[in-house]
Simulated assay, not measured.
Amino acid sequence: MYIKKILLIIVFAGLVGGGLFAHKVYNAVFLPNTRFETGEKVVYIPSEANFATVLDSLSPLLQDLGSFKQLAKRKGYASRVKGGKYAIKKGMNNNDIINTLRSGNIPVKVSFNNQERLPNLAGRIAAQIEADSMALVKAMTDETFLRDNGFTADTGLAAYIPNSYEFFWNTSAVEFRERMIKEYHRFWTAERIAKAKAQGLTPNEAVALAAIVHKETAKVDERPRVAGLYLNRLKQNNVLQADPTVIYALKKHRNDFDLVIKRVLYKDLEIDSPYNTYKYVGLPPGPITMPDISAVEAVLNPEEHDYFYMVANVENFGYHKFAKSLAQHNRNKEQYIRWINSQHIKR
């Protein structure tokens, strides 16, 4: 009888202990373990992060970090941390959180346009993905990459087609570059290449001209006319005389791309730079900015006309007055000079 009582006590204690353990396990796995009030919190886990880094990131978000830590170790996540962007939703339990960190890497939208140089582009991209600007510049300017893909240090910016793209936040600099070269080849279809060739241009030359068109006018509907004007000049082997190229040459010469120049002076036209299209015939060595796709399309589909000159239209700001002859252009130019002098714009 005594032995039976002891056995019953042992069994009962085992049941109670097992129940308590099961309850503890249930709580650790299935009970909500978040302590924030908003719908979700985003955490960024660096590519080289270890489990301690993950715990630091989650500490402000979880009620019981210890239970999460224990379950993560049991499920093997602690030794297989994955970098990325993850959304922890209010009311998630530890199991949900671990599964999210394993397979819930959220893509991010990466957007860029109108960058003047590769370092500017790198800075823009570094603000949107994990790769830092130094790594991006190194990847973008790699000589082997440029040579193998038909670019130079001057034309490298043309490899990046401005748009919005979906990436994982933990994309590396090289992965970003390789994705962009694929997008470049996707953009430059056989049809677009043929249109560039019809204008006597390679794709890189088309981008270089589009960059000038882009800088000359922000009016999308005017860009085909401006493109047609510069193509007329190229076909006549005339200097392009594009003020934006002179401004770029001045910035490059001074190594100051934050320089603001509202008025190009006659003395500026004398700068000895291959980007100065007042001094050198043909296109500059590379694009002076990253042109909008609309500017590239304007070069590929230019307006056909006999214009060779243009000047800002002070009667319709943002647009230009076009001329077929130098005499007509000089009359238009006099009106513009009177206006700019009246605004006291010296530089």
Rank of each mutant, 00 (worst) to 15 (best):
Y336G: 07
L101Q: 07
N316L: 09
G19S: 06
E222V: 08
G104K: 07
A28E: 11
A78Y: 00
F308V: 05
M310F: 15
T152N: 09
D148W: 01
F167R: 06
S172M: 04
E297P: 01
D96E: 15
L31D: 10
S164A: 13
G156S: 15
P107G: 08
F322A: 07
Y44Q: 14
A198V: 00
F317Y: 12
K333A: 00
E40Y: 15
K195S: 11
E303C: 10
A298K: 03
V207D: 09
K333Y: 07
Y77H: 08
Y309F: 15
V110N: 11
T144F: 07
L8F: 14
K82Q: 14
L146A: 00
P224Q: 12
Y184H: 10
Y266K: 14
P291R: 02
Q241C: 09
D148P: 03
I6Y: 12
I9S: 12
D258W: 03
Q115V: 14
G318E: 00
H344T: 11
E175C: 10
Q343R: 15
W169T: 00
F145I: 01
A13Y: 06
D64W: 08
A127C: 06
T141Y: 07
K73F: 12
P302C: 04
G19F: 12
R223C: 02
S273P: 01
G91T: 09
Q343D: 02
A312G: 13
S103E: 14
F21L: 14
N276Y: 04
R124Q: 13
I6C: 09
R177M: 02
L259K: 03
E222M: 10
P284C: 05
Y2T: 14
P287F: 02
Q236Y: 02
Y280V: 12
F322P: 10
R338H: 11
K82L: 11
T171G: 09
L300R: 06
T144Q: 11
Y77I: 04
Y230N: 10
K182M: 09
N113I: 10
N149F: 04
A78W: 02
Q236F: 02
V11P: 00
R102L: 10
N276F: 05
R177D: 01
L326D: 05
R223M: 15
R102A: 12
L65R: 04
G286W: 07
S172N: 04
I288S: 06
